[in-house]
Design a protein around this nucleic acid. Sequence first.
DNA 1: ATGAATGCAAACCTTTTGCAACTAA
DNA 2: TTAGTTGCAAAAGGTTTGCATTCAT
Lengths: 147, 147
Amino acid sequence: MHQERQQFLKFLRDRGQRVTAERLALFDEVYAQHQHLDAEALLSAMKEKGLKISRATVYRNLDLLVDCGLVRKQRLGRNRFLYEHVHPGQRHDHLVCRRCGKVAEFVSGGIGALQAEICRAHGFDPTEFSLQISSICRDCRAGRRSC
Amino acid sequence: MHQERQQFLKFLRDRGQRVTAERLALFDEVYAQHQHLDAEALLSAMKEKGLKISRATVYRNLDLLVDCGLVRKQRLGRNRFLYEHVHPGQRHDHLVCRRCGKVAEFVSGGIGALQAEICRAHGFDPTEFSLQISSICRDCRAGRRSC
DNA sequence: ATGAATGCAAACCTTTTGCAACTAA
DNA sequence: TTAGTTGCAAAAGGTTTGCATTCAT
């Protein structure tokens, strides 16, 4: 995480962008959380801690963290983008419930190779893919409203 | 397609819903197209043909076709839902460019089995999944704006 | 000093919804 | 006749943007 912070600072310097309190606070918040987060959740978590940051700044800087390679941004669940900090080494993908939007993670070595192959066959970058499976979760199948 | 039309009519009758000109026209349009479509594209295609249908009716009846099992609805590309009519037998999945939203289709037997396994392991329905791989397409990698 | 970043509110885009008018059954 | 359907326009939900102000360098 210290290394990631360095990476972020270097990224900013290299592009002539500024190190602001808001950027550092957002970085910290993203690394403090270990689930998938949407921008709104991040914003209210920060406000609850008494940090002063606006919605626009959260959105703008999340995209900056994505450009920096520290954060993955994916359209998961129903309508929102979810963000998560990248875990070096261990890649995982997502299983999303089509009905309630619940997200589960899975790791599958086997699928990785097949995906890369498919990307290659269609001219897509085989190193930058992410995989998402949509289905119906147990709770929704059982008709529970809880999920 | 005649069979699908019958299926649709039966579906409506069974649920006590009505056969309207708009519903039939939308059905026809969805089956006339052989690409992924969003609601807006469908709407303007129909307007161009001189058909009278409103945006709200397009959205409402696309969901009806989904419920009927004739249409797949997926969040692809950047912001929109794309719809496609189901091809019986041959299932395919989608490769989406993260940058420009281009969608390619692929068929992979190998991945199907792995997916079902993953769904099962997490309590998700292994028969109703759909798979989506996001990556960067050739054109975007080349920095072309054309894509 | 000055160009970049922020906050605010308005704009945006896609999808959904309330309601009065219409129409299939 | 009457309950389901339509069209319109407004609302909703998430994200982006314009602009004046503030701030890092």
